[in-house]
Design a protein around this nucleic acid. Structure first.
Lengths: 145, 145
DNA sequence: CGGTATTTGTCCGTATGTATA
DNA sequence: GTATACATACGGACAAATACC
């Protein structure tokens, strides 16, 4: 299954395998992956390798892990749209730890940074917000749920 | 220095310490952090803990690691602005592995997904692109360098 | 050009703690 | 109460890239 001497790191191969299963729909959103000990056995690798692989998928925002196990992340509905009025500028980056806690962001979830002229930059959760261009001379920046 | 019994995980404390140094400017962009063995000694923790801490900062996009060591990430200039015309919608997420390679994205760098009516979604590097609202009835979507 | 030292990368094993079922 | 499963943390070993002399 996993070849440690193929040039590609084992944890990478394991992550690729699981990612493929998710993309193929074999692992549906909400469904639990195998447990870590089970993966050790199935893939023939050590615990650290399994955990590293899961780490990758977590940092890609594709799975979430609780004490019960690791499950495929449910798609988050975008509950808010931010209108990009004239002069508004938006960038994206990963949140700091503080921001993560403040906005209850899962791992692997980036944030939007929206800058309006003469105002402090606003940091918004990247998994629940979408940015949209304004229609006409919109006032710019209203957050509609 | 690091208290393993404070409730906060050691790797977390180490990451916080380094992050604070970066934010305070004690570690300037481009500058190398201590080597991993040096950190082991300074913080009094094992290598796994040190590496885990650096992992966090990498996934936050704050440091980059090469075989020479780990250095504070240089600020990336935004070389492209995408105009958000009417009907244009943008979201953000972490890139897949393929996208990462295709766009030469470092770790901890998210992507923009820009959707225009009747077109395929466009994936843009989150560290070099900014989204801006259009002034008047802009054509929407021109990428100016 | 070659060799050595440094530094990170990969991988394994073990142990303990803690939340959940 | 017991068993399961993940979280944290330590340690060691070897490989591979890089820098320096």
């Amino acid at each position: 299954m996993i070849d440690p001497h193929s040039g590609v790191p084992s944890y990478h191969q394991v992550a690729d395998r699981i990612r493929a299963q998710i993309d193929a729909g074999e692992l549906a959103p909400g469904e639990y992956l195998l447990t870590e000990p089970a993966m050790e056995h199935v893939f023939g690798v050590g615990r650290a390798t399994v955990r590293r692989a899961i780490d990758i998928l977590r940092n890609e925002g594709r799975v979430v892990t609780t004490r019960r196990g690791t499950q495929v992340r449910e798609r988050q509905p975008r509950v808010a749209e931010v209108v990009m009025g004239p002069g508004v500028r938006a960038t994206t980056r990963m949140p700091s730890d503080l921001e993560k806690r403040a906005m209850s962001l899962g791992p692997g979830v980036p944030v939007f940074v929206v800058e309006r002229p003469g105002q402090e930059p606003e940091v918004l959760p990247g998994d629940r917000v979408a940015l949209v261009g304004h229609d006409e001379q919109g006032e710019g920046g209203s957050t509609s749920s």
